[in-house]
Amino acid sequence: MLTRRVIPCLDCRDGRVVKGVRFADLRDVGSPSELATAYQSQGADEIVLLDVAATVEARAHQADTVRAVREGLSIPLTVGGGVRSLKDAARLLEAGADKVAVNSAAAAQPEIIDALSAEFGAQCTVLSVDAADDGRGGWRVVVRSGKEPTAREAIAWVREGVERGAGEILLTSLDRDGTRAGYDLMLVRQAARVVNVPVIASGGAASAIHFFEALEAGADAVLAAGLFHEGATTVGDVKGYLSSRGIEVRR
């Protein structure tokens, strides 16, 4: 049986992992390759690396970061941030990414999802969606690291992304991100119901119970950053807890 995944996320800027990405005060928490291998030893099932700067100048740097992280990892690596073309994706894959996540560029030009999926396969194409509560029981897609709201309805966008060829959805609740209030379970439940591809829940995890709740709501994988960076808990402890609650995880 396919196990559920626990995925630490490294938000990177200029080759360093930072914390508090969607908020003003960014704090340096360490080297991406060192943190990635540390989480791998804790039992992480995968690493997600999101480059939040990803300006034109930072591009070459980004590939170097991916290369350094890859050398030490024997688990899958998903990379996102600033992917706007097939060429951007190819550069990250050549550097050692196993999957590429698109976010803002896809919301602006959805055809990039079709193109990535045709070129590299659905299993390689992750649609990253940042969703914010619209105050009417639904969610809107927000792009550019949570700065720019769009007219897109999040659940419809998730469905469209999969129809276009995305093989996985990385779903972040902007309302919960950094709040420690737990994942947005309604959002997770609805997204997991409308698509047949795996859904990774993100945003708001502060305890092992939150991971359990998101998996119960239908998520195939759970992602967290700050919780692990702070050392409040380890991937191993989270997986131990999930296992004790009857969730199948790789031990």
């Binding site: 049986m1 396919l2 196990t3 559920r4 995944r5 099932d45 659905a122 299993q123 093989g167 996985e168 047949n196 591809v197 795996p198 195939d220 994988a221 790789r250």
Partner: peptide, 24 residues
């Protein structure tokens, strides 16, 4: 079931294998 299958799955062994063993 979820397609693509993305993630870790248990492997069980049939007879006569030289290289493979059980694991994820």
């Amino acid at each position: 079931v979820r397609v693509p299958q993305i993630g870790w799955n248990a492997v069980t062994c049939g007879e006569g294998l030289r290289y493979l063993c059980e694991g994820y």
